[in-house]
Computed example of a mutant assay.
Amino acid sequence: MKGPLFYAKILLFGEYGIIKDSKGLAIPFNAYRGALKSSSELSGKSKFSNENLLKFYKYLASLKTDLVVFDLEQLKEDIDRGMYFDSSIPQGYGVGSSGALVASIYDKYANDKITVLENLTRDKLLNLKQIFSIMESFFHGKSSGLDPLNSYLSLPILINSKDNVEPAGIPSQKQGKGAVFLLDSEQIGETEPMVNIFMNKMKNEGFRKMISNEFATTTDACIEDFLHGNVKSLFGNVKSLSKIVLKNFKPMIPDAFHKVWENGIKTNDYYLKLCGSGGGGYILGFTEDFEKAQNSLKNYKLELVYRF
């Protein structure tokens, strides 16, 4: 048994904002992927994954929802036979490792599933997002459902608001100097504690104002610029966003990277922002000159995502 491949995702813009209903833009990232496989000889990672799938099965079996029905009998049988999720997607890195797993389970075991091939109306997309939100909550405590949706459809997705998501056309990559890249913090980040910090901060009126007046409006401007290929304006807005995040989301930025973050803003060699919930994993970088950024960040591992 070998299931279809599901890819990692990168939330280019919208981390935390989408919890509070501002815009977001997510793209598939094909450098990392996962698939369901089966083996009678489980050890190490595959054994751990199989045990995790059993816990996930119990969670799905306990769900009280009319949104989706799973073939739980088949799922349990396959887990007992040694099914596991074989994945190259790093966990705790903000690139959707649990999202790809959720997408693969839905794809194989949901009855009357919404398929990628049918006409994806807004209602169907929202339905899928809700189903995935419920499923992925097993891993994070609270999930928007966006990561699995992105992985399942393997399309860029624009989140206009909680109830309005649509596939997005993004400009095709150019062979220019500019780039979006990943910077490896070489630390694992956990989503739940980071989201809890954010939710506690949201109790503060000043922070709430900053989110709606500064953070959300700058994020929305970045998305508009990116979708319309306004590169010059994009970098101005990404620089503003980088400053806002450094000032207001310090706990989500690993301590060792506060100076690196500041340095990018000061030199204009690159601008950093959170990739997912932060706290570790990848940090997302934008630069008008990738060579210059590589030079400035030569002590770190960088991975190219998109070229301008």
Rank of each mutant, 00 (worst) to 15 (best):
F138M: 07
K142T: 10
S143W: 07
S144A: 15
G145K: 11
G145L: 12
S151F: 10
S154D: 15
L155G: 06
I157W: 05
L158C: 11
N160Q: 14
N160G: 10
N160S: 12
S161E: 05
S161N: 14
S161V: 06
D163C: 06
N164G: 04
N164D: 12
P167I: 15
I170A: 13
V180E: 09
F181K: 03
L182C: 05
L182E: 01
L182G: 01
D184H: 08
D184F: 03
S185P: 10
E186H: 09
I188S: 12
I188K: 15
E190P: 02
P193W: 12
N196F: 08
N200W: 04
K203D: 12
G206V: 08
G206W: 06
R208D: 05
S212E: 11
E214A: 12
F215G: 01
F215C: 04
T217K: 04
D220M: 10
D220A: 15
D220P: 06
A221D: 13
C222W: 00
E224R: 05
D225A: 13
L227G: 03
H228N: 15
N230C: 08
S233F: 09
F235I: 04
V238F: 02
K239T: 00
S242L: 07
S242C: 14
K243M: 13
K243F: 05
L246Y: 02
K247M: 00
N248L: 02
K250R: 14
P251E: 06
P251S: 11
M252D: 12
I253N: 06
P254I: 10
P254H: 09
F257I: 08
F257T: 06
E262D: 14
G264A: 04
I265R: 00
I265N: 01
I265S: 03
N268Y: 07
D269R: 03
Y271K: 00
L272F: 02
L272Y: 00
L274Q: 07
C275I: 05
G276Q: 04
G278P: 13
G278H: 06
G279P: 09
G280S: 08
G281E: 03
Y282K: 02
Y282C: 07
